[in-house]
Nucleic acid binder design. Structure first.
Length: 264
DNA sequence: AAGACTCGCAACCGCCTTCGC
DNA sequence: TGCGAAGGCGGTTGCGAGTCT
């Protein structure tokens, strides 16, 4: 028995969003509350599934999104959080304001994974990559590679220039640290698939005293003060139309201050 | 110059979780 | 308490752009 599709797909458009569709969605969300996504496409006049609208909004159109590559510190945070949480991208993204789970996931898969491998670290387990020998390190003096924060909070801070792009290849034996310095903690990596059982790793994430990354309310959604341009949308793409001839009061607010980043 | 190959990202798919009745 | 609907999430895919041969 197949699962019912999330929405009736007959007649629904798929694939890349057009500028016009973006405008419609933006306009709708600016003018209305985000009631239920299922209703959004119909009300906004889009031939899309509600899920698709939600995804487009949260991953691409949301005003508080940062664009561009992750900064060095963001990347470090992602690595650290990943060692705690595994592939729980939404949880990781929650600690990185303006970043989406999808963006972080993509960045992880395309950049960080490679860099960690280059460093001799298994991106899944955050342990040293084992050479040919499949046996895990058994030495009582050595324990598995600890998560960064646990291993040494100064891991990064002591290397201000740390950039995973530039790190030399590190041999596994160079990474292993004495157990005393880093009590083994359950790493979530079998974890990439497993449910990081909950409290444990989550508590650990708290324990490392991550910087408070909570958005101020104003930034979250109608944070017009930190939000630049639909104009960039209007000038982008084939149409080059001004989508907001009929701007809502909400979007009019956005005119009052320049938005600080570009969506496209 | 052109075809092959690689890479990165946006978007989709389908399972899981949450919520309302 | 159980059920169905909707939203959330993580894995995967497809395609365009860039690079290599």
């Amino acid at each position: 028995m197949g699962r019912q599709p999330c929405c009736d797909k007959v007649g629904l458009k798929k694939g890349p969003w057009t500028t016009e569709e973006d405008k419609k969605l933006i306009n709708f969300i600016l003018n209305n509350d985000q009631c239920c996504w299922r209703a959004v496409p119909k009300l906004a006049g889009l031939l899309r599934c509600g899920k698709s609208c939600r995804l487009r909004w949260t991953n691409y159109l949301r005003p508080d999104l940062k664009r561009g590559l992750l900064s060095e510190s963001e990347e470090k945070l992602v690595i650290d959080l990943h060692s705690q949480l595994g592939n729980r991208w939404s949880k990781i993204a929650a600690s990185l304001p303006g970043r989406t789970d999808n963006e972080i996931k993509n960045h992880w898969n395309t950049h960080i994974k490679k860099k960690l491998r280059k460093m001799g670290i298994d991106p899944l387990t955050h342990k040293p990559l084992l050479p040919e020998d499949p046996q895990p390190p058994q030495s009582p003096q050595l324990c598995r590679f600890p998560v960064f924060a646990e291993a040494d909070p100064a891991f990064y801070s002591n290397s201000p220039g740390f950039c995973t792009d530039e790190v030399p290849l590190v041999e596994p034996h160079e990474i292993l640290v004495p157990c005393a310095a880093a009590p083994a903690a359950p790493c979530s990596s079998s974890s990439s698939t497993s449910s990081v059982s909950s409290s444990n790793s989550l508590v650990k994430a708290e324990e490392i005293q991550l910087p408070s990354m909570e958005f101020p309310d104003s930034l979250y959604f109608w944070g017009a003060d930190d939000f630049i341009g639909w104009d960039s949308i209007s000038t982008q793409g084939e149409g080059k139309i001004d989508p907001f001839n009929q701007r809502s009061s909400a979007s009019a607010v956005l005119d009052q201050e320049p938005w600080k980043f570009e969506l496209f």
